[in-house]
């Protein structure tokens, strides 16, 4: 009996084990390939990344990268320390620091402080931060603080100057959506619909635009059009999810979820009964 046990132990255990072994060997071969070059950044190797930061020379990029690494690790104490250091030592970095406070830490007073400091560097120019003008990020910050009128004022700065100069088709459709959300919040659904129409022209398959059109129509008690808009939103959401990944969001600053759209449709059914 024991000999049988020995035999069983010495033989490859099962088909599952075989499968696991194949997977393991494949991952080992991949890791060998990953190791063929020396990395300049280590990303998830947090300790190695820290050593790299500690030994690299002080530049705006290295300061920002360090702040970002700490943010990624949810080490908020160090992240805030390095965000502040980045802004203090490299004033041109105030913009990205402000954006990180806004998008990653949702710390709106600090975001505003840094965005203002960035904008003050060139007072007569609406400076860009990544792909957005500083006025747009300030608008989002005011919106998050609940001050929609100031938010609209800031959104208008970026949108109107670009639209007058080059035409509405050059405006990022997400900027129209953000302004529309503030119009809806301040009970101005007609203005919201105007913005959402312009947004649709710039991206016709947007679930985000359709969803907020539904909300604007609801405010106007145009329930049939609202239902159509929410149904469009649901359709575009599913289509985009199939095209991209499961955790895809059209706009991180204006997230929309499938359940949210379904609930809006369900509420509409309840109202019309």
């Amino acid at each position: 009996m024991k000999q049988l046990c020995i035999l069983c132990l010495l033989l490859p255990l099962s088909a599952v084990a075989q499968l696991d072994g194949e997977r393991f060997l494949k991952s080992c071969a991949s890791m060998l390939a990953t190791n063929r070059k020396a990395a300049s950044m280590f990303y998830t190797n947090t300790k190695r990344e820290k050593i790299r930061h500690d030994t690299s020379s002080a530049t705006a990029q290295s300061y920002r990268s360090r702040a970002f690494t700490y943010l990624w690790q949810s080490n908020y104490e160090e992240a805030a320390l390095w965000l502040e250091k980045t802004g203090d030592n490299y004033p041109k970095e105030h913009g990205i620091v402000g954006e990180l406070y806004l998008s990653k830490l949702q710390d709106y007073p600090r975001a505003l402080h840094h965005l203002d400091a960035y904008d003050a560097l060139t007072p007569n120019f609406d400076d860009m931060i990544s792909n957005n003008p500083v006025s747009y990020l300030r608008g989002l910050t005011y919106r998050s603080l609940g001050d929609h009128s100031k938010a609209i004022e800031q959104f208008c700065l970026g949108i109107d100057s670009l639209a007058i100069k080059h035409g509405a088709e050059w405006v990022n459709y997400k900027h129209f959506v953000s302004r529309a959300i503030s119009y809806i919040a301040t009970q101005q659904p007609e203005k919201a619909l105007t913005d959402l129409d312009k947004a649709t022209k710039n991206f016709s398959r947007s679930a985000l635009v359709a969803y907020h059109r539904g909300r604007a129509f609801l405010q106007l008690n145009r329930t049939i059009e609202a239902r159509t808009a929410f149904q469009d939103a649901s359709f575009f959401f599913k289509a985009l999810r199939a095209e991209r990944t499961g955790d895809y969001q059209e706009d991180d600053f204006n997230p929309v979820y499938e359940d949210e759209i379904d609930e809006a449709l369900a509420n509409l059914k309840t109202q019309t009964r």
């Binding site: 890791m31 060998l32 063929r36």
Partner: peptide, 17 residues
Amino acid sequence: LIKLQDDLLSIGTNYPM
């Protein structure tokens, strides 16, 4: 990237094996 120290062979620096 391939280093030898006594009887230990180390491959790579990203995820040294």
